[in-house]
Design a protein around this nucleic acid. Structure first.
Lengths: 131, 131
DNA sequence: ATAGGGCTTCCAGTCACTGGAAGGTCAAGA
DNA sequence: TCTTGACCTTCCAGTGACTGGAAGCCCTAT
């Protein structure tokens, strides 16, 4: 199977698929003309990677998860540890963004946003920290 | 004022302060020996940048906000537009992360996480999409 | 024979820093 | 005076996960 068909079936751009090969996540066969030739198993692994990426796992997490996936001896504890750590990071990121959101929405609400020159947003940004 | 004092007073690392100069956000004077010499105004602008960055504004947003800050003729509408657009992005990002969080926390909860080999997390990642 | 689309590789750019190397400068102490 | 150590400087490279673009080969249809 050619790369553009794999792209269609996995939803991943061809560039990304080539990149995943470059960093050793997949190793499709090659035809005599040099074209990549993807087997069903490659397709399956790429779909796995796409799904893991869409859940926000890093490439290195994806590499580990894919290795665990193909390892019959792995324990579910190993997988869960990765997922739980990732979940923790996501929760931390959400909290950070929500703090920004709180501050920003307050500032946006307090700014009349018209043609006048005074602006509470800039005033806040410029405020000296209380020592 | 030397760079390390500015770093102490703004909370920004010296590397970052030099980087901000490289991309034209600040332009401190130089001493005869080549050392950067920061005035109070530079310090103030760097603190402004640090605060804006901590609210998640991109460098280009920060550049625009700093320009507006020093522009007596600016309107609060211009500032508010930048902040509101940024707020929208933050809200979108939060929604995206929360979707990941929902899925992941469900998967983590469903995985017993012991020495057994079956794992709902991997099963989900490997699942074929319903066509 | 040619036109087009698809495939290949390689290089550079993204964003906002961050680490490290190589070397100049300054103030304090022996 | 010399040395030590903490500063400061510039420059180069790397981060993560792609993405865009150029140059050129391959394949199929007309």
């Amino acid at each position: 199977m050619n790369i553009s068909q794999v792209a269609d079936r996995t939803g991943l751009p061809p560039k990304t698929i080539r990149y995943y090969e470059e960093i050793g996540l997949v190793s499709p066969a090659r035809r005599d003309n040099g074209y990549r030739d993807y087997a069903e198993n490659d397709l399956h692994n790429l779909a796995f990677l796409g799904r893991a990426r869409s859940l926000g796992f890093s490439i290195e997490d994806c590499r580990a998860l894919l290795a665990l996936y193909t390892d019959r001896e792995r324990t579910s504890a190993e997988v869960r540890a990765i997922a739980q750590e990732h979940l923790k990071q996501i929760e931390a990121k959400i909290a950070e963004l929500q703090a920004m959101q709180d501050t920003l929405s307050g500032l946006v609400a307090s700014c009349h946003g018209d043609s006048r020159h005074d602006c509470p947003i800039l005033a806040d940004l410029a405020a000296e920290k209380a020592d």
